Computed example of a mutant assay.
Amino acid sequence: MREILLVVDVQASFSPPHWLVTGIRAVANRMPSVATVERHDESRTPFERQLGRHPAADDASLVDVDRVFIKYGYLPPREMLDHLVAMKPERVLVCGMQTETCVLAAGFMLFDAGLTPTLVKDLTVGSSIDRSGELGTSLWRHHFRQLITVAELDAQA
């Protein structure tokens, strides 16, 4: 099966747990992979004005991938979507930070583009409102149905 891994916002300013970074690195080493990194530019996305906080202006991905796409705000950039569509994957495995916000936003964008977003549910962490990621996982299941675990990926290999 032609799969691509999308790593969402696994970067120092979001303090990902070590187990998450290690787990994602192991999967990224096995297949084509891309990542998003969220950076702050108040002229593009009003994080500071509206939320009183913001990501770093110069953060980098903590996972080595084939290509990194910089984003400003919740949605992945159009260039990333165009790149993934051109690769024609059977499914896009999605993992990373903030299951119920940025990860879910990526899922909607992939779905709307005709791709098959599949959440790697044990390689995501929710936001501070639900660090377990269960809210995001439930929303993902409701909207896209496609979920997988690392053990299920290993069994398919």
Rank of each mutant, 00 (worst) to 15 (best):
V94N: 06
M80L: 15
L119S: 02
L6W: 01
T137S: 11
P77M: 09
Q50T: 10
R30G: 14
P32H: 05
V85A: 05
Q146V: 04
Q11C: 05
T22C: 10
L153V: 02
I129W: 11
D59Q: 06
D9W: 06
T124Q: 10
R30E: 13
A113T: 04
D122A: 04
M1E: 13
S128V: 13
H54D: 04
N29P: 04
P32R: 02
D64W: 04
S43L: 06
R91E: 05
S61D: 03
T36I: 04
R39Q: 11
R30K: 10
W19N: 13
T124K: 07
P76F: 01
A28G: 06
D66L: 00
R44L: 14
S43N: 12
T137F: 11
V10N: 07
R67P: 13
C95W: 03
R39D: 03
L81Q: 02
T116C: 15
Q156R: 13
A57S: 15
D154E: 15
E38Q: 12
R78Q: 09
L110M: 01
E100W: 10
S33A: 13
F144H: 07
K121Y: 06
H142A: 15
A106W: 08
A35W: 09
L20K: 11
L123R: 11
S15M: 14
G23Q: 06
A106Q: 04
A105P: 02
G96F: 00
M109I: 04
D41K: 14
L6A: 08
P89W: 13
M87I: 07
L84M: 07
P17Y: 01
T124S: 11
H40T: 15
V120R: 10
V65T: 08
Y72G: 08
P55Y: 12
V63N: 07
V27Q: 12
D112Y: 04
S13F: 13
T36V: 05
T101I: 15
L51H: 12
A28Q: 02
R67G: 12
Y74S: 10
G126I: 13
K71Y: 05
I70K: 09
V37E: 10
L51T: 07
D154F: 03
M80I: 05
H40D: 13
